[in-house]
Design a protein around this nucleic acid. Structure first.
Lengths: 250, 250
DNA sequence: ATAGCATTGTGACATTCTTCACAACTCCTG
DNA sequence: CAGGAGTTGTGAAGAATGTCACAATGCTAT
């Protein structure tokens, strides 16, 4: 609620009744899941599912991927729990918000579960992102290789400093901020990254929202004010450090 | 619990009885606070205080600093709450875990409250940090200017790649990993940053712990296994993005 | 002084999140 | 094809966190 903007979307609080997946699926058949996830109950579902749960899903996906790398095809909630350091009950409960994906006595099919969670998180596509603020931090983010492998791709770089404009970073030119809103609209961008100085973060967020962005990854140490339909997550190493020193002994 | 290692320190669960600050303090006298915070109840207190609360404190400090910049000397929980986008009751409750810092009818003295929270978080000193893994990410972190202003300073850079060793980044030489443990011991380092590739993160964490580090800022996308007296916080932009796309409409 | 406004600190309550524990089911083995 | 071992999914209980609402108190103005 503090470091994340809970995005308490104001839509009618209709309880979802149709499970996303059913019991009679063939665990490794992606088409089946496809159909299940696209049906009409899906859109309403995220009202009911706690954000804590949603935040854990990427960790599950990541862990399942590491199992796939090791060619392990099946996993129990118990084993997954040990790997992630949570309780098995929590994993089962988390998954149960979305349907039934496991087999009693057997566990979960790694590939099927991983695909399913990715579909829930809408990671079954590539999301273009605009990056605002091309100082040192912006450069580092633009050069970061970890996004492509994860359904994300930076497609535009923006900076308000006209003298930075034109420079090419990781094959993309830096463009002026005044082009930001139109670019977002034209390219249907839904995700923005803020790496501007603190004082410019809010105005940047406003422009992102104006363009139609619905998710903002904020590296600036400020709490952003955005409409309820926009989600914000903070990346704040300093706060993280400052909260850890509390626990240091002596 | 997932992205943070709750650091459920196993010490006797003694309830703290002595408030850290009292009512008869002079709000702007730092010496008073000093004495209060150093007394014997302090060490036991963190058992009882929820980690969620501790994580919010850096935001309070940051916000109070921004008020100080504007020369505002007094603030109510209501006003602070608006700035941070939490409820006023939550701020009052959070602070009440540590004592009574406000004045009825008046609010809080900005400087006093800020100093006090910093003291609680042990930010009234500079923490040396070792940075492990000097790839692109490591370089970016080493060059980051935001730490000094926040009680932190990177004092050692380490990489396992011998060909990187010797290079000077932001006035510090990169040193070989084999010197890590001894350096931590000799320099009494308590905080480590992991910016290694995923596969090396756990072994790096083990070395940090062996040297005596009690707080780890982990940029690698892995859940680290550490003893209970060590706190870990994850910096994971990919997971943050992956959990936000869930909420995107359409 | 005293009244009255503003604001804290906190019991009591409400809500959210986690864990327990077990019926239901699946699979394997003989 | 029955029995046992293993594991899920989930009601119900429990723990943790957040909010309400108000008595207590300090401050200001007259």
């Amino acid at each position: 609620m503090l470091d994340c903007n809970e995005s308490d979307i104001s839509m009618p609080a209709i309880a979802r009744t149709t499970p996303i997946a059913r019991d009679d699926r063939e665990p490794t058949n992606p088409y089946r899941v496809d159909m299940d996830l696209d049906d009409e109950a899906d859109e309403l579902s995220h009202l009911n599912i706690p954000d804590v749960v949603i935040r854990r899903l990427p960790i599950y996906v990541r862990t399942l991927h590491s199992l796939l790398e090791k060619e392990q095809t099946s996993v129990s909630s118990e084993e997954l729990a040990r790997m992630i350091d949570v309780t098995a009950a929590q994993i089962r409960r988390d998954l149960s918000y979305f349907g039934k994906f496991g087999k009693q006595g057997k566990g979960y099919d790694v590939g099927y579960l991983s695909d399913t969670i990715e579909r829930i998180l809408k990671l079954d596509r590539t999301w273009g992102m605009v990056l605002c603020g091309m100082g040192k931090l912006g450069h580092a983010i633009a050069n970061y290789r970890g996004f492509q492998r994860s359904s994300f791709e930076i497609t535009g770089l923006f900076d308000s400093d006209e003298s930075a404009v034109g420079e090419v970073v990781n094959e993309l030119p830096i463009r002026p901020m005044r082009e930001l809103v139109d670019t977002i609209r034209e390219e249907h961008i839904r995700v923005g990254i803020i790496a501007t100085p603190r004082v410019n973060a809010q105005e940047t967020a406003d422009m992102l929202v104006e363009g139609g962005v619905e998710a903002i990854l904020n590296y600036a140490p400020v709490i952003l004010r955005v409409p309820a339909h926009v989600t914000v997550r903070e990346i704040d190493p300093v706060s993280a450090l400052q909260s850890m020193t509390y626990y240091i002994s002596e």
